[in-house]
Computed example of a mutant assay.
Amino acid sequence: MGEQLSMTIAWNNGTRGIYTSDPHLHDGHSTTFGQGIMRGQTHDELHPDQHASWEVHDRVFIRLDHM
């Protein structure tokens, strides 16, 4: 069981971004025990050398093993 997310997003300009989160949630300023924030990497599907980091810091995720 993991906390990893992977998705492909089609953008209006015809490109597609591949988004993959880290394999675990990270502690954040507003998280408590059993919660975390999501971080990861993205790249253009046709140009994998074009990449960036991303982070969801305005939402808190609950770890499945703490539900």
Rank of each mutant, 00 (worst) to 15 (best):
Y19R: 01
G28H: 07
Q50F: 13
T20K: 13
D22G: 04
H66Q: 07
A52F: 05
H57K: 15
Q50V: 13
H24D: 06
T31W: 00
S6W: 04
H24P: 01
M7W: 10
T31K: 01
S53M: 04
H47F: 12
D44C: 06
P23E: 07
D65C: 08
W11I: 14
E55F: 05
H66I: 00
H47I: 11
L25R: 05
R59A: 10
T31G: 01
W54S: 09
W11K: 15
S21K: 07
A52N: 13
N12M: 10
A52P: 01
T31F: 01
R63F: 03
S21P: 09
H47D: 11
E45Y: 07
I9W: 08
R16A: 08
D65H: 11
H66T: 07
P48R: 05
P23F: 02
G14W: 05
M38A: 10
A52I: 04
A10W: 06
I62Y: 03
G34A: 03
Y19D: 03
D58N: 14
V60F: 00
F33N: 04
H57F: 14
P48S: 03
I18V: 15
G2L: 11
H26R: 11
G17Y: 04
D49N: 13
H29C: 09
T42E: 12
V56D: 13
Q4A: 12
F61T: 03
T20F: 01
D27C: 05
F33M: 03
M38C: 09
G28D: 02
Q4F: 01
G2T: 15
Q41A: 09
T15R: 13
R59I: 11
R63K: 15
Q50P: 00
A10E: 15
Q50N: 07
D49I: 08
L46K: 15
Q4L: 03
H29I: 12
R39T: 15
